[in-house]
Nucleic acid binder design. Structure first.
Length: 613
DNA sequence: AAAAAAC
């Protein structure tokens, strides 16, 4: 029984894959060029992407003066053919897409990220299993959708409608995805059409796959986009950035599953871990680089990575990536590191929340983008039961203890359900964790003062149930897909309602239900109004005392950018054009499949989405 | 004020 979108493989299988990665046999020379390609002259390398001298894309100095030592693999005929080769386990079929990876057939070298769970070939046998794969798709029907922008491609209802190719389809089946989630149904066709995209979708609704599939598919399709390197500099074609190391790892793990046997190589780079291993991995070739910003800048400054060949840029948790703390770094990476300009590359931004001012800032990186919002009110799903309790600072620990005791007694055979406890500070995390352990609740903690090793150990220990309580700072607030989290406790509430949305989104994933409890007191007054509104929109019970605090809170005091208190899903261009009494889309919108608000999934007539609008 | 992100 699975609860996660991509991590449909059992934890143990995933761990095997991780440990195998460390013992992978490596080619003795990363720059090996197979004999049949050695005769390839440099003039063969002057394609649109790989041409160092005449190539229009590479205008930097990387190749200047030195003789470029580019690898180029045989042209693929079609990836469908490669897929048959791969499925048959056949040896080096000439021209297969898999040959991209370095000229020699490395399929046997590729760790199967699905481990022992790889049973896709008997589709019929697996069909009933798929239907029970733990993804509750019914929970995603009736979902309001807003799309704006020019020439929006229509959504699809099945993966079969999307021409992703046979290999990707096999991986989709291996992941036990039966049909696309709403964000996937809309975002994948938009991305495949080459459009820039800003996409808001609820936590846990399958965003990673929504940007990974088009990236992988696009890289497979582009015959001229051959992987290459100049000296020790590698040139990824796709770049995926995320705000935390653990999230980058998670995206990498999922992307590895999606790209299995496609020949598309995914590499991850993040701080806190020895750089040498990451460098070696990069040297072996990279098509899609998943990274945190700091380590990427390091790699760029060492000239071990160049962004000149990037055709796809995806920012996960994009509003976080563009907030005050990250924006300068992102701007440096995107604007000052030889990355092709917007409009040349394709840019996709994903998040569950998208404050209007961040949308405005993000438009610097986008070219005529399509805005997509998929989700129910509040962007907190109504799969999560939200509770708020008034708890004085001094009572928080004993109150938490009461909750944990009750939970243990109600739980399965006295086993503690996985509980994620968010606190404000790193010190507070350590001290609460220590206190819980002293009081008989096996706990661990994850925050930025711990070593990366400790952080990853904590996460594993929590996932496995060894320490069923994880005390965390906001490092764990976004994106992490931890199956079976039954309860999120906001021991300390965040100051920003968007952070609250992301935190509680660690439960209630993949269509499963979850519980979120918040401890509210007088130090959280600024959150009273947005929290009350959010809960009300999600049809949650709002305590009278909270309504009271909310009514006394000053208007506009918080940076609630939700006009009318709605879920953070509305195109800032639309709002601003309304404000200026201008129709931003007067020219281009007429040909749209959807104009304005259309409920595609729910079967409502247009205009009946007022509750959400 | 706090958190995250390179060495």
């Amino acid at each position: 029984m699975r609860t996660s979108w991509a991590d449909s493989v059992s934890n143990s299988a995933a761990e095997i894959a991780i440990s195998d990665k460390n013992s992978l046999p490596r080619p003795t020379r990363s720059t090996y060029v197979p004999p049949h390609l050695r005769s390839g002259s440099i003039s063969d390398l002057s394609g649109p992407v790989t041409g160092t001298n005449g190539g229009s894309r590479w205008t930097g100095s990387d190749g200047g003066g030195t003789k470029p030592e580019l690898r180029r693999q045989g042209q693929a005929n079609s990836y469908a053919t490669a897929g048959r080769d791969a499925a048959a386990g056949g040896g080096g079929g000439g021209g297969g897409r898999n040959n991209r990876s370095g000229g020699w057939d490395r399929r046997e070298r590729e760790v199967n990220p699905f481990g022992n769970d790889d049973k896709i070939y008997d589709i019929k046998q697996n069909f009933s299993e798929q239907e029970n794969s733990g993804i509750n798709f019914d929970a995603y029907e009736d979902i309001p959708v807003e799309v704006s922008g020019e020439n929006v491609p229509p959504p699809v209802n099945t993966f079969a409608e999307i021409d992703l190719g046979e290999i990707l389809n096999q991986n989709i089946r291996r992941c036990k995805y039966v049909k696309p989630t709403p964000v996937q149904r809309h975002a994948i066709p938009i991305a495949l059409a080459g459009k820039d995209l800003m996409a808001c979708a609820q936590t846990g609704s399958g965003k990673t796959a929504a940007f990974c599939f088009p990236l992988i598919s696009g890289i497979m399709r582009e015959l001229y986009a051959q992987r290459s390197h100049v000296g020790r500099t590698v040139y990824p074609l796709g770049l995926i950035l995320s705000p935390t190391r653990e999230l980058s790892c998670q995206i990498h793990d999922e992307a590895k599953k999606f790209s299995y046997q496609t020949g598309v190589k995914v590499v991850v780079a993040y701080g806190g871990a020895p750089i040498n291993q990451q460098l070696r991995e990069l040297e072996r070739g990279v098509d899609i680089l998943v990274a945190t910003p700091g380590r990427l800048v390091d790699l760029l400054e060492r000239a071990r990575v160049s962004l000149q060949a990037v055709r796809y840029l995806a920012l996960d948790e994009a509003d976080r990536m563009l907030d005050m703390g990250f924006e300068p770094q992102i701007r440096k990476i995107v604007e000052q590191m030889n990355m092709p300009n917007r409009g040349v590359r394709q840019t996709m931004l994903f998040s569950a929340t998208f404050p209007r001012e961040i949308q405005r800032l993000a438009s610097d990186f986008l070219s005529n983008h399509i805005f997509l919002a998929v989700g129910r009110v509040g962007s907190s799903t109504d799969l999560i039961v939200q509770r708020v309790e008034f708890v004085l600072e001094s009572d928080k620990r004993s109150h938490l203890m009461d909750l944990l005791h009750a939970q243990r007694e109600n739980g399965n055979h006295g086993k503690q359900a996985l509980t994620l406890v968010f606190v404000e500070t790193k010190k507070g995390a350590d001290s609460l964790e220590h206190w819980l352990c002293m009081n008989g609740f096996p706990s661990t903690t994850i925050h930025g003062d711990r070593t990366q090793q400790e952080r990853e150990l904590a996460l594993r220990s929590f996932k496995s149930g060894k320490t069923p309580i994880l005390v965390a700072t906001d490092v764990a607030a976004r994106g992490l897909d931890i199956p079976h989290v039954a309860h999120v406790v906001n021991f300390d509430l965040p100051n920003d309602i968007d952070d609250y949305v992301h935190r509680i989104g660690r439960t209630g994933r993949a269509g499963k239900t979850g519980l979120a409890t918040a401890f509210f007191n007088e130090s959280n007054l600024s959150l009273a109004r947005p929290l009350a509104e959010l809960m009300q929109e999600a049809s949650q019970e709002v305590p009278a005392w909270l309504t009271h605090y909310a009514s006394r809170a000053p208007y506009g005091g918080n940076k609630n950018r939700r006009s009318g208190g709605r879920f953070g899903g509305s195109d800032f261009r639309r709002e601003e054009s309304i404000g200026k009494n201008l129709d931003y889309y007067s020219g281009g919108n007429s040909g749209n499949a959807y104009e304005g608000l259309v409920d595609i999934a729910g079967g409502y007539a247009p205009g009946v989405t007022s509750a959400w609008d």
